[in-house]
């Protein structure tokens, strides 16, 4: 039975237009406006521009001079590395281990996925208590084992590590679920054949699981890296205003700070343009590195 409805594309276009209009109004127009704003003087959220910057590209010059931007970029790169190694690496190990057990798979899926459903702000508060200087969980544990001096896990020496641990921990479950679903899609016949041929467990992982999981890992890699560029909520709860001593800025937190705290809205717009450029460049690099294969 043929029908004209599939040949006539007009209804399809009609249904696509609202979604496109929505994106145009709430994404593309604000983005273009944001680029324009980065050349203007805007001292309050909601207020109109007081003219153009002098010179009009002053904010972009400032981006090169601003030491905090350099800190934010370096920290963001560190966060990307922590994400790939910590989130993706741990998720692969967990997924391979859970895939090898016969009972309790559902239990571990739920347990590892659980942090994802907790709000980042709640996690931030939770880890604030864990790392608290005075009577925080870690310092209490250290005292139990005989330590006499408290460690400030939020000082300059420890701050970045303290920030990365909860961020990494939060999303391990997300990639774990994607990876274990990928592992479940690998046919048992392949494993059975390898076993008959005398392959050890490690050889089955090395020569069957990991190669067939390659495309899934690539997808996770792209998601992890782009996610690291956008991370904001948990670091802001734990280390507001780049504390301590401007050492924990990320591009996202620094942009927010200028928009909502210091009210330097035009400079915040310039930072957001930088974030978009950084995101596009990084996505290109990641796509090249994690190139998917056709099987």
């Amino acid at each position: 039975m043929s029908s004209n409805i599939y040949k006539n594309k007009k209804p399809v276009i009609f249904f696509l237009v609202p979604a496109f209009a929505f994106l145009a109004v709430f994404l593309y127009y604000p983005f273009l406006q944001n680029i324009l704003n980065s050349f203007r003087v805007i001292n309050n959220l909601g207020s109109s521009a007081k003219g153009w910057n002098d010179p009009w590209f002053a904010n972009y010059v400032e981006l090169f001079k601003d030491a905090n931007i350099r800190t934010a970029l370096v920290n963001t790169l560190k966060m990307i590395a922590a994400t790939i190694v910590g989130q993706l690496g741990i998720a692969i190990v967990l997924a391979l281990m859970v895939d090898n057990i016969k009972k309790g798979q559902k239990f571990f899926r739920t347990v590892y996925f659980f942090p994802i459903v907790i709000a980042a702000t709640a996690l931030g508060l939770l880890f604030n208590i864990v790392f608290l200087y005075d009577k925080g969980m870690l310092n209490q544990l250290r005292e139990m084992f005989g330590a006499v001096k408290l460690v400030d896990f939020k000082d300059n020496a420890h701050a970045m590590l303290t920030m990365m641990i909860p961020v990494t921990w939060q999303y391990v479950g997300f990639y774990f679920i994607i990876l274990i679903t990928g592992l479940n899609n690998i046919s048992d016949d392949l494993y059975e054949a390898a076993t008959i041929d005398g392959a050890s467990k490690w050889q089955r992982v090395r020569y069957i699981s990991l190669p067939l999981l390659h495309n899934v890992i690539c997808t996770c890699g792209v998601l992890a890296v782009t996610g690291a560029l956008k991370v904001f909520d948990l670091p802001w709860i734990m280390f507001p205003k780049g504390m301590p001593s401007n050492s924990t800025w990320l591009t996202g937190t620094y942009m927010y700070y200028h928009a909502f705290e210091s009210h330097n809205v035009d400079y915040s717009s310039a930072i957001s343009v930088l974030i978009v450029v950084l995101g596009v460049v990084t996505a290109k690099i990641v796509n090249a590195v994690f190139k998917e294969k056709d099987y």
């Binding site: 604030n128 608290l132 200087y133 005075d134 408290l150 400030d152 939020k154 000082d155 300059n156 701050a159 507001p240 504390m243 301590p244 001593s245």
Partner: peptide
């Protein structure tokens, strides 16, 4: 001031 005054939040020092 608290030893961690340069890394603590206002909430933490209030709790002290």
């Amino acid at each position: 001031l608290p030893e961690n005054t340069l890394s603590a939040t206002d909430g933490e020092t209030f709790q002290l």
